[in-house]
């Protein structure tokens, strides 16, 4: 009997201690002397860009409001990030790779309807496109989409189930197939099938794919965001080449305020300001510096040397918008699953 009493006491004591400890650590979102904590959940490649942007914004915020702001970043495959927000990741804003991921969050009740109209240009402050990255010398002579299905070519591209960039990659490939095979579904599927047959590694995010290709030295070609490719060229001069395919897609990453969280954290104003500021000249220029195509036309022209502005680009509208495209290609048992299962 004495033993049981002792056990009860210890259990209660420990639980209490553990809860207290966790409560203390959990109360991290306190405002210490006027500093707000603000979380931006973003997609995989934008790490460097937002690191720089956050510094810029913090300064701007201090100047305009006089308060400090602590900016917390989270990165990962766009789809995975969206899911984490739905599951409780306390994002004040999301800056993801495609509108569909934000729509998923909207459908879960965290973002109010009509988010896309809240910011300029369909809430897409910067755009990009899909290109190929190859090793210097381009031994395997990869110049366009049809070279990707050649035998012996090893492709690195991420997984559309978790990565936004991967979705854009797939759609660009599909568009090429559509124009090449004149809408013959069978031949188009066959093409994409052969392409994914050559895929060596499928990472969960675009940055992961870049890491696999560059640091881990795997594969002959990386299907990548343009910004990723350009960043790699900058980091490793002379080691890689960027190949622009004959046809690609205008990739429009979207941004939105996560209303439920922002309301709960009292950061609605800050969130709006944070996203609006992405459209300011300084921010647009910074985006260009980090190889994202500024959506502001004037600023974009300043980077005419960086970006190939003459690429033949289709858009998501050619696929009937994201809802349609996602259902057709990336939902369960849709085209991607069909192709991948047959491997």
């Amino acid at each position: 009997m004495k033993k049981r009493g002792f056990i009860c006491k210890t259990v209660c004591f420990t639980l209490l201690a553990a809860c207290t400890a966790m409560a203390l650590t959990g109360c991290g979102e306190e405002k210490e002397g006027g500093t707000i904590t603000f979380t931006n959940v973003s997609y995989d490649p934008t790490r460097e860009f937002y690191e720089a942007y956050n510094e810029l914004f913090a300064e701007h915020y201090k100047e305009t409001t006089g308060s400090g702001i602590e900016l917390v970043q989270s990165h990962g495959g766009s789809g995975s990030q969206a899911r984490s927000v739905i599951e409780g990741n306390d994002a004040d804003v999301v800056t993801l790779a495609l509108a569909h991921d934000i729509t998923a969050i909207e459908n879960a009740g965290l973002i109010e309807e009509g988010w896309m109209e809240e910011f300029e240009r369909n809430s897409s402050p910067y755009t990009s496109t899909i290109v190929f990255l190859v090793h210097s010398g381009n031994e395997k002579e990869i110049n366009d989409w049809d070279d990707l299905i050649k035998e012996g070519v090893e492709i690195i591209t991420p997984d559309p189930k978790s990565s936004g960039g991967a979705c854009w990659n797939f759609l660009a490939a599909w568009q090429y197939a559509k124009t090449t095979f004149g809408g013959d579904e069978e031949k188009m599927k066959e093409f994409v099938s052969k392409l994914y047959h050559n895929v060596l590694v499928m990472d969960s995010g675009a940055r992961g794919a870049t890491t696999t290709f560059v640091e881990n030295g795997q594969g002959d070609v990386l299907i990548a965001w343009e910004n990723e490719a350009l960043l790699t060229l900058q980091e490793y001069p002379g080691e890689y080449e960027l190949v622009t395919p004959g046809i690609s897609i205008l990739a429009e990453p979207s941004v939105a305020v996560v209303d439920e969280n922002a309301d709960k954290n009292g950061t609605q104003e800050v969130a709006k300001e944070y996203l609006n500021y992405l459209y300011s000249e300084e921010a647009q220029r910074m985006a260009g510096k980090y190889y994202y195509r500024p959506s502001d036309e004037t600023v974009l022209q300043e980077f005419a040397d960086t970006f190939d502005l003459s690429v033949n680009l289709c858009t998501i509208d050619d696929f009937g918008g994201w809802d349609q495209a996602y259902e057709d290609f990336f939902a369960d048992d849709a085209v991607f699953d069909e192709i991948y299962a047959a491997q």
């Binding site: 966790m22 650590t25 959990g26 109360c27 984490s84 599951e87 409780g88 306390d90």
Partner: peptide, 9 residues
Amino acid sequence: TDIALVFSV
């Protein structure tokens, strides 16, 4: 309190 048991310390 405001304890979150996911995506937190």
